[in-house]
């Protein structure tokens, strides 16, 4: 509908050339991230030596650890943006739209990376522990974080008034964040009481080359994460503009109709 009426549609003053989803900065960042990801695959699969204790399973280290760091970072960014939205949003010129977009974009990237962390963690666990899953505090908390933020994203997709939706989403993000330590603590306590074997028994000893590869792949995934959040942010912004203009068009159409009658 929007594209059909595009020719006579005036571009609103807020829309400028900078609005498309890439800029010079993010293009450079995107290529850097892409090249470093390719390099990570080569380093992790070919260059990195086998670990003395865990053998080739250590290659999962370069995926799993950076991926979960990006996920944690994204959720922390979502929580901070949500808190700032609730605290300062009203007094800002844009009514906190910017913070809301940061929170939404971060949360989505965080969910994707948490899913990847859970998958790679399960595969890694299958090789080293013999099982896909262990009920330890960190794993359980990560799984809960994943479903909590899936719920958060569902909340953001609801067809309600944007300001109401943003506020509810921000509160949901903060409640989930407050709750995660409680999950961690209670599971930790539970497993300790049951005297389960610790997971750190045959963890790889990270030394020399492995350490550099881990560092490199962390940088690669962090760059990728930032690039993804930046682009997701811009897509959210474009969607908001489309929704606003769709509304304006609908109102204009109503007015025209009324005028004809």
């Amino acid at each position: 509908m929007v594209s059909a009426t595009k020719p006579e549609m005036p571009v609103s003053p807020r829309t400028s050339a900078r609005m498309a989803t890439s800029s010079v900065g993010t293009t450079v960042l995107g290529w850097l991230a892409f090249v470093s990801l390719v390099a990570t695959a080569v380093l992790g699969l070919v260059v990195s030596p086998r670990d003395v204790v865990t053998g080739d399973a250590v290659r999962f280290l370069y995926l799993h650890v950076p991926v979960i760091w990006v996920a944690y970072g994204a959720f922390i960014s979502c929580a901070i943006a949500s808190a700032l939205f609730l605290w300062k949003g009203k007094s800002r010129a844009d009514r906190g739209r910017h913070l809301d977009r940061v929170a939404g974009a971060s949360a989505e990237v965080g969910v994707v990376f948490t899913a990847l962390a859970l998958i790679t963690g399960a595969m890694w666990g299958r090789i080293t522990w013999g099982v896909y899953w262990q009920w330890d505090a960190r794993l359980t908390m990560t799984a809960m974080m994943f479903v909590s933020f899936l719920g958060y994203l569902a909340l953001r997709r609801l067809p309600t008034e944007p300001s109401v939706r943003s506020k509810r989403a921000a509160i949901a993000a903060l409640v989930s964040s407050v709750n995660l330590p409680l999950v961690h603590f209670s599971v930790d306590w539970w497993r300790t009481l049951h005297q389960e074997a610790s997971l750190s028994v045959d963890e790889a000893e990270i030394t020399g080359n492995m350490y550099s590869v881990l560092l490199f792949s962390s940088v690669a995934f962090v760059l990728t994460g930032i690039w993804l959040v930046a682009h997701r942010y811009r897509v959210i912004r474009l969607e908001e503009i489309r929704d606003d203009e769709g509304l304006e068009l609908a109102i204009a159409a109503r007015r025209a109709e009324a005028g004809v009658d």
Partner: peptide
């Protein structure tokens, strides 16, 4: 993002940059 930008009539001036990031 590219589809939305096209719908909103924003992408014309941005073609080179958006094009570059296509394989990103």
């Amino acid at each position: 993002g590219r589809r939305l930008a096209r719908e909103l009539g924003l992408a014309e001036g941005e073609e080179p940059q958006s094009g570059q990031s296509r394989e990103d």
